[in-house]
Simulated scan of single mutants.
Amino acid sequence: MLPHHPSIDALPGTFSSENFHLICDVLASGDADLMFIIQTYGYPPMWTRANTFETLVHIILEQQVSLASALAALNKLREKTTEISPERVLLLTDEELRSCYFSRQKTAYVRSLAEAIVKGQLNLASAEELPDAELRAMLNRLKGIGNWTIDVYLMFVLQRPDIFPVGDLAAVNALKQLKKLPKDTSREELLGIASKWQPYRTVATMILWHYYLSLRVKK
């Protein structure tokens, strides 16, 4: 049994390393399936990343490939540039980026991002102050940056507490398996289930990812 905790409405509007486990506990106290994950596999990591150009490049590289493949490309780019900055990336030729395992599409996406930062169209420090919807609209205008990339940026980098990345296959598949849902469960139904975890859908998603990764380790 979990100890008594305040209701979710009584918690602060953000999450941090200080209150992350408490929020996990409160979510689990209202959802037996989340409680099962925590009791079986422990608390999830509180995944975080720095608010840098390199981090956004890393997230772009993670689009539709394995995490290991994305990291290999990022490490190759780091070897090539020493420091992954917009200015240094823009000096590289397409061939040099291809040697870092960049596809043609991701080369275009990263160049577009680098140009937006160099031209002052995107300021990552200022982005921290923007509401979710305004920041999403701004990032969506950049080539190759869609809702999944923005969701990961909001969750990992800015620690925005109430994001459910419905386009993330790991989170969605974990939710379907956990709740014993049909494979063809609609996006609307998934969002409806996730709405019960408001205003901490980000933390609930981290519990789902933890479940997904723990099951893969067991196999």
Score class of each variant (00 low, 15 high):
Q64H: 12
Q64T: 01
Q64I: 01
S66Y: 13
A70Q: 01
A70V: 08
A73I: 09
K76V: 08
K76L: 15
K76N: 14
L77Y: 14
L77K: 12
L77R: 12
R78V: 11
R78P: 09
R78T: 14
E79Y: 11
K80C: 15
T81K: 05
T81L: 14
E83G: 00
I84A: 06
S85M: 05
P86D: 01
P86V: 07
P86Y: 04
P86S: 08
E87H: 09
E87P: 02
R88G: 06
R88S: 10
V89M: 09
L90N: 12
L90F: 10
L90R: 13
L91C: 10
L92P: 10
L92Q: 10
T93N: 06
T93W: 07
D94Q: 15
D94V: 12
E95G: 15
E96Y: 12
E96C: 12
E96M: 12
R98I: 12
R98Y: 13
S99H: 13
S99M: 13
C100K: 11
C100L: 13
C100F: 11
Y101C: 15
Y101E: 14
F102Y: 11
F102A: 09
F102M: 07
S103W: 14
S103K: 11
S103M: 14
S103H: 14
R104S: 15
R104H: 14
Q105H: 14
Q105Y: 13
T107Q: 09
T107Y: 03
T107R: 04
A108T: 04
A108H: 02
A108W: 04
A108K: 06
Y109I: 06
Y109R: 03
R111F: 01
R111H: 08
R111Y: 01
S112M: 07
A114T: 08
A114W: 06
E115C: 10
E115A: 13
E115L: 13
E115I: 10
A116D: 11
A116L: 11
I117R: 02
K119M: 01
L122W: 05
L122S: 09
N123W: 05
N123V: 10
N123S: 14
L124T: 04
L124C: 05
L124A: 07
L124R: 02
L124S: 05
L124F: 05
A125I: 13
S126G: 13
S126W: 01
A127W: 06
E128T: 01
E129I: 01
L130P: 02
P131G: 03
P131T: 05
P131M: 04
D132N: 09
A133W: 05
E134Q: 12
E134R: 11
E134S: 11
E134D: 10
L135D: 04
A137T: 00
M138Q: 07
M138F: 00
M138I: 00
L139K: 01
N140P: 04
N140I: 02
R141K: 08
L142V: 06
L142M: 06
K143N: 12
G144A: 02
G146T: 06
G146F: 06
N147E: 08
W148H: 02
W148Q: 03
T149I: 02
D151C: 01
Y153M: 00
Y153W: 04
Y153Q: 07
L154Y: 02
L154N: 04
L154M: 10
F156H: 07
F156E: 01
L158G: 06
R160Y: 09
R160H: 00
P161K: 05
P161V: 05
D162V: 07
D162Q: 00
D162K: 04
D162F: 07
I163Y: 04
I163D: 03
I163Q: 00
I163R: 08
